[in-house]
């Protein structure tokens, strides 16, 4: 008797399962067809870093103080700067990021005293060459149009 009851309750559980999946079958799909559709990245998304612009002068805010270099746990930042004539602080000439080692922890941004670096929202970085081993952020900064 117990065996019969077990068979019946077991069959019922199977039928319940099948009913549930069939209901899911007729629901609309919930995925995003990735290369064709993309989702907006959230405000705080941590992509690789980039140099920020001073909205008044249009120059990079970075003063090449090298605090980010020291804060980085993976040693993937290399900064250099010169002191230009007639300016109080140094300005950045070289800012290299080895993105292959970066773990996107944000220690550099927290360490920065002049708020000169920020995260980008780039996420689909892939390369067959060594493009991201030595990212020239100063060049990237120059290439970017000034926002009005």
């Amino acid at each position: 008797m117990k065996a019969v009851r077990e068979v019946l309750s077991g069959t019922k559980s199977l039928l319940v399962g099948m009913r549930l999946t069939l209901r899911e079958f007729f629901k609309p799909t919930i995925t995003v067809q990735y290369p064709h559709q993309t989702l907006p990245m959230p405000e705080r998304f941590r992509g690789h870093i980039e140099l920020r612009r001073d909205p008044e002068t249009g120059k990079a805010l970075c003063t090449a103080c090298k605090l980010c270099e020291r804060a980085c746990p993976s040693d993937c930042i290399l900064v250099d700067g010169v002191k230009l004539e007639g300016e109080k602080k140094k300005s950045v000439t070289d800012y290299h990021l080895n993105f292959t080692q970066c773990s996107l922890c944000g220690a550099c941004i927290e360490a920065c005293p002049s708020d000169a670096i920020q995260f980008t929202k780039r996420y689909n970085l892939a390369s067959q060459t060594n493009d991201y081993r030595n990212m020239d952020l100063v060049q990237r900064f120059k290439d970017q149009p000034e926002k009005k």
Partner: peptide, 28 residues
């Protein structure tokens, strides 16, 4: 099939945490 249902729900958590922390898995 269950793992995909689970990932659907997990996605909602990850979206919440991503909006706050900026990352989906290694939050730091």
């Amino acid at each position: 099939t269950p793992i995909l249902y689970a990932f659907d729900d997990r996605e909602k958590i990850l979206d919440l945490l991503e909006a706050v922390t900026g990352s989906r898995l290694t939050y730091c």
